[in-house]
Design a protein around this nucleic acid. Structure first.
Length: 348
DNA sequence: CTCCAGGTTG
DNA sequence: CAACCTGGAG
């Protein structure tokens, strides 16, 4: 019934048009922490640029990060390449099919390993992501915190029982029952069994849904409590000289590692009286005290306000890690979303 | 505007 | 268990 609904209502997504485990792996990594709508154009561009594991293993770091620019969580893309190199070394460039070998690749945890093995290889491996947690919490009316170890174990057991039963039932010919079952659960969570205002009247499972019967579907699953946020303020400087712009690359091991950005510094106060002093410390002088743009963004628990100002160079030696690039060259570098926005504001 | 969602890692 | 990032919903 659920699978029947899925076969009638599945969205036509690019990674559903392939059974190449490499493509399915790439799509699953992109879909970690990322909305389907956002991932689609990235996936299509990626598969054109890097159609095989070997091409991923060989691509330069710069081009690799550019393909991921704007998706966030950039360790994902470095883990993709690290895994591709492991696959070339240890698996003869063939994507492994054993669950344990899949799980051993960096960036692949229990969810992603289960998703790849079930979707690409039709193995009865369970999956439990945010969508499935929501669907199972509601169908089985689980009122305890899904993050709590006992409840989490129960949810994994339910997911496993469902996919195992799907494998056992004699399938209609030409159907991949484990793949279809797991994708059905996720599709239901993504389209009908949504976090807020679920579309219960359209749901194929509605007659069997414990939460719906009790009228508590809107309250499940129990929301996670979130950490307190911290305000932070940054000043960034757009330095243009002879048609070139001053940028730097963030070092390994920090937030947004390997991505490019404009020179910037954290300041204590939002409307900084330290604007000139901050610039001077970096060997720069403010041209226009009116910001080129101000923008807000968040990284984990930090709420960041960033103001960008045009500036000029006073002392070139102070910014040791600076590089000068033309506008055209900047377009080939991977920037964080915040700094890509500065560039857009500057050259619009 | 604020709040929220979301897998893996160290 | 905190850190990682961005886009979308309300």
């Amino acid at each position: 019934m659920l699978v029947g609904w899925f076969e009638q209502n599945a969205r036509d997504l690019p990674w559903r048009r392939t059974n190449d485990p490499y493509a399915i792996w790439v799509s699953e990594i992109m879909l970690q922490q990322t909305q389907v709508r956002t991932a689609i154009p990235y996936f299509e561009r990626w598969m054109r640029a890097l159609p095989t594991v070997e091409s991923l293993a060989r691509i330069s770091s710069g081009r690799l990060h550019k393909l991921w620019e704007g998706l966030g969580y950039y360790t994902r893309v470095r883990n993709l390449q690290k895994s591709a190199r492991m696959i070339c070394q240890d698996h003869n460039a063939q994507f492994p099919q054993q669950y344990d070998a899949v799980r051993a690749l960096p960036g692949i945890g229990p969810y992603t390993a289960g998703a790849i093995c079930s979707i690409a290889f039709n193995q009865p491996t369970p999956i439990l992501d945010g969508n499935v947690i929501r669907v199972l919490s509601r169908v089985f009316a689980i009122t305890s915190d899904p993050k709590e170890p006992r409840t989490n174990t129960l949810l994994w057991q339910l997911a496993e029982a469902l996919v195992t039963r799907a494998a056992r039932l004699s399938p209609p010919s030409g159907c991949l029952p484990c793949s279809a079952l797991n994708q059905s659960l996720m599709e239901l969570g993504a389209t009908l069994c949504t976090p807020r205002s679920p579309s219960c009247p359209l749901c194929p499972v509605q007659p069997h849904c414990g939460a719906r019967q009790r009228g508590i579907q809107e309250q499940l699953p129990l929301p996670a409590r979130r950490p307190a946020t911290t305000q932070r303020h940054f000043l960034a400087f757009l330095v243009e000289h002879k048609e070139r712009y001053l940028v730097r690359q963030r070092p390994d091991g920090m937030v947004n590692a390997h991505l490019w950005e404009f020179p910037n510094a954290e300041v204590k106060a939002p409307l900084s009286t330290k604007l000139d002093a901050t610039a001077r410390k970096m060997g720069l002088r403010i041209i226009d005290r009116k910001p080129l743009c101000t923008l807000k963004h968040s990284i984990t628990r930090y709420r960041i306000t960033l103001a960008a100002h045009r500036a000029e160079v006073v002392n070139l030696g102070t910014l040791a890690d600076g590089h000068w690039f033309t506008r055209r060259q900047l377009d080939r570098l991977a920037f964080t979303s915040a700094h890509r926005q500065i560039l857009r504001a500057a050259t619009l």
